[in-house]
């Protein structure tokens, strides 16, 4: 009632600045002919571009022209269709009722009853038959796994711990050339393989070894390895102990081997103990010797599995 009394005293004020209108949607909605013309124009352009793709393909033009024409053509075709749908097709808002997916309580009970009662007939009265059938199905499930899994490949055995380095195996570079005392200068580095294993999958994946010359005299990385680095030549497995990437970067001044995958760093001087990063173990060191002609060979194979850790790794050491 107080509102009614106050109402006449208010003065209506025109509010032109306060009346907002969305220029885009409003304009388009008010001028369907213009929308139709624009969409038509877009379609024509799309047709030209898509036909242009055909021509470009025919002429074997470069991939960026192929992709540019088909991409732009399809984009315009899609854009025009979407605009047609947005401005010229019935927008609603329309409403649709949801149907209740759930059944009635009675229907639920009937379903449960059917399941429970019929199962009772099958299982409870014929326990032995049910048990035998379940046993058969279970055994099938297990034996079916044999061909599915076991046929795939060999069991690991101790193969994961093996490399082709033996006592006396010659070190060769990636071209198969043996490594001589004079091959590397101090600070030099190269990847070596066991002779005869260059360019083989095994040689590349498991035997890969990094050879570094740290100084001109014999060098001891850790106690017990006094003879392993003659004339300053040190060899470590190149497979990172983290995830097996090749430890391919060498920081010469700090004498650090770095794995580019996850940045584990190994100190060449102290037996490749990981100095940084996620690698858990030093790189295994290969004991070296010179043969009578001054060529490098292995004193023995690696004393532990190379590469990343696995369940039985410490068994096979």
């Amino acid at each position: 009632m107080s509102d009614d009394q106050h109402e006449p005293t208010r003065t209506k004020v025109p509010m032109p600045i306060a009346a907002f209108d969305d220029p885009h949607l409003g304009d388009a909605a008010r001028n369907p002919q213009r929308v139709e013309a624009i969409v038509g124009g877009i379609f024509v352009l799309a047709i030209v571009l898509i036909a242009g793709f055909g021509a470009a393909y025919w002429q074997n033009w470069s991939p960026w022209i192929l992709g540019g024409t088909i991409g732009a053509g399809l984009f315009l075709l899609g854009f025009g269709l979407t605009a047609w749908g947005k401005y010229l097709m019935p927008q609603g808002p329309f409403v649709e009722e949801r149907h209740v997916l759930a059944s009635s309580a009675e229907e639920r009970d009937l379903m449960s009853a059917a399941l429970v009662e019929r199962t009772a007939v099958v299982v409870k009265r014929r326990k032995m038959l049910g048990g035998l059938f379940a046993l058969g199905a279970g055994i099938f499930g297990i034996v079916a796994m044999f061909p599915l899994l076991r046929s795939l490949g060999p069991v690991p055995g101790d193969t994961l711990a093996l490399t082709n380095w033996r006592r006396g195996t010659k070190l060769v570079d990636s071209n198969g050339r043996p490594v001589h005392l004079e091959t590397l200068v101090v600070g030099g580095i190269m990847t070596v393989y066991p002779r005869g294993r260059v360019n083989t999958d095994e040689g590349q994946a498991t035997d890969q070894t990094v050879l570094i010359r740290v100084q001109r005299t014999d060098f001891t990385t850790v106690p017990g390895r006094e003879t392993w680095a003659p004339a300053g030549y040190v060899a470590y497995s190149k497979a990172c102990t983290h995830l097996g990437c090749p430890v391919g970067l060498y920081e010469q001044e700090l004498e650090l081997l770095v794995c580019p995958c996850h940045q584990s760093m190994f100190n060449v001087r102290n037996g490749a103990v990981p100095q940084f990063g996620p690698a858990p173990r030093p790189l295994p060191q290969l004991p070296l010797m010179f043969d009578a002609n001054g060529y490098l060979a292995a004193q023995a194979g690696y004393d532990q599995p190379v590469g990343p850790g696995y369940w039985t790794r410490s068994n096979t050491t």
């Binding site: 399809l74 899609g78 269709l81 097709m89 019935p90 329309f94 649709e96 009722e97 949801r98």
Partner: peptide, 24 residues
Amino acid sequence: NVVGSPMFPTFMAKTTGFLLMVTA
């Protein structure tokens, strides 16, 4: 309820256009 545009033709036009634009 669900409020919006109908499958045919409005949504179908928009979504087909969108398929073309994603491909593009």
